[in-house]
Design a protein around this nucleic acid. Sequence first.
DNA 1: TCTGGGGTCCTAGGACCC
DNA 2: TCTGGGGTCCTAGGACCC
Length: 417
Amino acid sequence: MFALVDCNSFYVSCERLFNPSLRTKPLIVLSNNDGCIISRSTEAKELGIPMGGAYFKVKKEFEAKGGVSVSSNYCLYQDVSQRVMRELEALAPQIEVYSIDEAFLCLKGFSSKELLAWGKKIKKTIYQNIGIPVSVGIAPTKVLAKMAGQIAKNNHLFNGVCFLESIVTQEKFMADFPIECLWGIGRKSALKLRSFNIKTALDFKNFSNTYLVQKTLTKTGRQIQDELRGISCLGLNAIQERKAITSTRSFGRGVYSLEELQEAIANYVTKAAEKLRQQQSCCKLLSLYIRTSPFQDTSQYSRYAHFEFPHPTNDTLKMIKCAHNVLKDIYRPGYKYQKAGVILSHLIQENQIQLDFFQQQENSKLIKSLDRINQQFGSLSIKSASCGTENKWRMKSEYKSKRYTTQWSEIAEVKCI
DNA sequence: TCTGGGGTCCTAGGACCC
DNA sequence: TCTGGGGTCCTAGGACCC
């Protein structure tokens, strides 16, 4: 048996945790650059605010109806997430942290009678100890547990906990479960399945042409079908090292000059390289891209290029130099650039690097000192001069809440009146 | 004027080997 | 004029997730 624990409107719930005045208002959380809507309270959903929609399109109307918008605050969300996961680890024999707001639990050793009660206990404990409301779905496979989670969240009769035990119950809900809502079936796959007259999860379960499923949806689709049939294909995944680290941002305004792009790229490399060192890895390949806005009618330009290091590295300064060389190659003047990004891949553990006769000593002492200083005095306290100081291109984040739990200077205040 | 960011997995097809 | 068969490895691009 698997359980899926999913935090309800996670970012919104985090914001409400430390700002009770937001608890009764329609609330939305915006993506980076205050561009899109990425989390909505129930009240905001009822006002018809679309998930993933462009903020500027709804801003006026939403505010007129008393809605409140906040910029995303990942320091806060990450920290609250870790607290939730710690609680879950104490409650279940095995856990897979699937995303910032979700975890799968493996339920060996529970009788089916105990399972529902146990699900309710999880919900209650997380709310009591952390203050975040969650939904719990329990079923024999991961895909079914995901489905149970959806049902627990949307069907009020369940009070946030749904256990799909018997095949009869599973099929009863599958019959009303649209195919596009199934975990792993996106827009494209749903269209293909609908062309075979498969409209619900139950239709998919009963579709007998497995050859066609494999052919159109590849191995992934076949596994989903098996999981619907109660055959578990997807186990609990252990935490694994990242295979790639990316840092990409849209600009707060159009960027034209090479100098500003260089600044932005230097900042992104700095960020990505820090993450790389945190997991004690080096990278062999640095990829980089710049592009104009696809939403604008002005002439478009987009380029993607790589640099392969002769020796795997995590040295920020060396990486910035190489990135700048690549950037010079792909930069063309006269365009209004909207976004740039850096991707580090072909990662390898620091202690597994193969050295050779001619390899120069890495500048590791300097980099280690930088990391230590930044850890103590805050991110980017000391950085390469190429990162610039003004950063006029920097993304917008106009309505950001405080980092209540990770920054002493921003800690929550309690006032006695 | 303003439309996010960070990931994973799978497959086809190219390049190469003997 | 005729030009095989069996294999591996790598990567770009597509699709999906939250």
